[in-house]
């Protein structure tokens, strides 16, 4: 892909933020057309910096970026989507942090076209901020992120024998990357049970728009099962569990009523 202009304007979601040097911040941003980038927000930690509140984690900002030899510099930034509830609710913040970590882990830095992923990430963060229960939107995000990254699990054919999957309970193999039929299941190690309703849920999330998935009113059981399957599959691909997953689990457990 050709190198972009020396400066470009973009909208960006701030995925990660670290202190850098005396008063700067190093931001990892996801942009629609310039991929995932590390950029420096110079002086952003100074109280009087015009950029300070505009480069906050898990917000959307319009930025002017000067490209550099190694790192770009965010010369201007203006927050355009604050997503307040992610800061006011520990559970929502934990879900959003988990999604941001997944994007960071699955996307290589560089100038690739990330328009689809950008739209998905932005829409997911807005849903986590807005809806009563963000679990469905996070599951949908996981499924669509896996598809975008080329790791979409095979859900129509047995990944061992290749035959079409029959309408019955199956098993899922994170190592083989999809469904294994009962006939071939004994040949595969480390499988997870995959009830028929959960398989249908995963297929629906793979093939449909979010609004259609939401309208399907998926019961809690298949949703919990989908979480179990996707969590194991993601851990297998990344070769470890995302760091924020443990915190999310703990916060959810401690926030559960009773």
């Amino acid at each position: 892909m050709p190198r972009p202009d020396r400066s470009y304007r973009t909208t960006a979601i701030i995925l990660k933020r670290r202190d850098f040097g005396e008063a700067d911040r190093l931001l990892t941003i996801l942009t629609p057309e310039h991929g995932k980038q590390d950029v420096i927000a110079k002086g952003a930690r100074k109280l009087t910096s015009h950029k300070m509140g505009h480069v906050e984690l898990l917000t959307r900002a319009d930025m002017l970026i000067h490209t550099g030899r190694e790192l770009g510099v965010a010369a201007q930034a203006e927050m355009t989507l604050p997503l307040d509830r992610l800061r006011e609710d520990l559970v929502r913040g934990a879900y959003a942090g988990y999604c941001a970590e997944l994007v960071d882990k699955f996307v290589n830095a560089g100038f690739e076209d990330t328009r689809t992923l950008y739209r998905l990430t932005e829409a997911t963060l807005i849903r986590i901020n807005d809806v009563d229960d963000p679990r469905l939107s996070v599951r949908y995000f996981e499924v669509q992120l896996l598809l975008w990254a080329g790791f979409g699990p095979e859900l129509s054919e047995c990944v061992v024998g290749g035959e079409p999957i029959e309408p019955q309970d199956q098993v899922f193999s994170p190592g083989e990357g999809g469904v294994v039929c009962p006939q071939h299941a004994p040949r595969v190690l480390n499988t997870l049970s995959l009830p028929m309703l959960t398989l249908k849920t995963l297929r629906l999330m793979q093939r449909s728009r979010y609004e259609q998935v939401e309208a399907a009113n998926i019961p809690q059981g298949p949703l919990d099962d989908s979480e179990r399957i996707l969590s194991s599959f993601i851990a297998h691909i990344l070769e470890k569990r995302p760091l924020s997953a443990e915190f999310l689990r703990r916060i959810r457990r401690e926030s559960a009523p009773g």
């Binding site: 015009h50 509140g53 906050e56 927050m79």
Partner: peptide, 16 residues
């Protein structure tokens, strides 16, 4: 708002 800053440049979260 911090002392010495401009309201014009404040982000919406800080201003709220």
């Amino acid at each position: 708002l911090p002392v010495g800053s401009d309201i014009e440049y404040a982000d919406s979260v800080t201003l709220t």
